[in-house]
Amino acid sequence: MPDLVSVNYRKYDGSLHWNLRMRRLGEDEHGVWLGLPGGGVMRKGYGPMVPIACAHVILLPRDAWWTAAFNAPPRETEIYCDIATPPEWLSSHEVSMVDLDLDVIRKRTDGSTLMDDEDEFAEHQVRYGYPADVIAEAEAAGRWLMDAVDGRAEPFGNASRAWLAMVDGERP
């Protein structure tokens, strides 16, 4: 039986956001790697299951204000980073973090890197009352990720390939 981990992104008020179960693949100098083959599912809050067509792996770094999903082709988005509070392991089978809205995305089609949801980040600073230190950490993580993802610094270069190969083509 694979070592399954419940991955729970929450919003700042504690409400459940995107959540899914993934297989623990292993750990390296970048953090913990989890994988889900194409055909897996995720859900937003308690809503309906959303099918995921392409395999992907998620990197949960240690003590960093982001997580990163690396998607198999032909998915248009190659890398999708969520700016979030550092992942908190509630047990060996459950990890949770607060999604802070900002995302850094690298497109597969042209290799461009962009920051997304800045409007949502500004809106939620007011709605949820993000403290100044949370805002500063999120903005700093966004700046760092834009440079690292665009520059293909590891783990945004080749580090994900071996992990992705472990799940690409499998079925849940």
Rank of each mutant, 00 (worst) to 15 (best):
L100A: 11
D103L: 07
K107N: 11
E120H: 07
L114V: 12
D101R: 15
D119K: 01
S112D: 14
I105G: 03
E120G: 04
S112G: 10
T109C: 02
K107M: 12
V104P: 02
R108F: 05
D103N: 13
E120W: 05
S92P: 12
S92C: 11
I105T: 09
V98M: 14
D99V: 06
K107G: 03
V104C: 04
E118W: 06
D119T: 00
D110E: 01
T113P: 09
K107R: 11
D99R: 08
G111F: 12
V104R: 03
L114I: 12
V95T: 07
D116F: 14
S112L: 07
R108Y: 01
L114H: 15
G111R: 06
D117W: 08
V98F: 08
I105Q: 10
V95F: 10
G111A: 07
D103M: 09
R108P: 01
D103F: 14
D101C: 15
T109R: 06
E120S: 03
L102E: 13
M115G: 08
V104T: 00
T113K: 13
M97W: 10
R106C: 02
V98Y: 10
R108K: 00
H93N: 10
L102Y: 15
T109Q: 09
S112Q: 13
E94K: 02
E118I: 02
E120V: 05
L114E: 15
D119M: 00
T109I: 06
H93W: 07
D119E: 00
L102Q: 13
S92N: 14
D119W: 01
D116P: 03
S96C: 06
E94P: 01
S112T: 08
F121M: 12
L102C: 14
S96E: 13
E94I: 01
V104M: 04
I105S: 03
D116G: 06
M115K: 11
H93A: 06
T113C: 13
D103S: 10
V104G: 01
I105M: 09
D99N: 08
H93I: 01
M115S: 09
I105R: 05
D110I: 00
G111K: 05
V95A: 08
D119N: 00
M97Q: 13
T113L: 09
S91T: 08
L102M: 13
G111S: 06
I105V: 11
G111L: 04
D99L: 06
K107D: 08
L114D: 13
H93P: 03
H93S: 06
S112A: 11
I105N: 04
L100M: 14
E118F: 04
D116C: 09
F121I: 06
V95K: 12
R106A: 02
M97C: 14
E118M: 04
S96R: 10
E94N: 03
E94Q: 01
R108T: 00
D110N: 04
L114Y: 14
D101E: 15
S91L: 11
D103T: 09
M115C: 12
D99A: 05
S91D: 08
D110S: 02
D110H: 03
M115H: 09
E118Q: 05
S112K: 12
H93L: 06
F121C: 10
E120M: 07
L100F: 15
T109M: 05
R106Y: 04
S91M: 10
D110M: 02
L100Y: 15
M97S: 12
V98S: 11
L100N: 11
S112N: 13
D119I: 00
K107W: 14
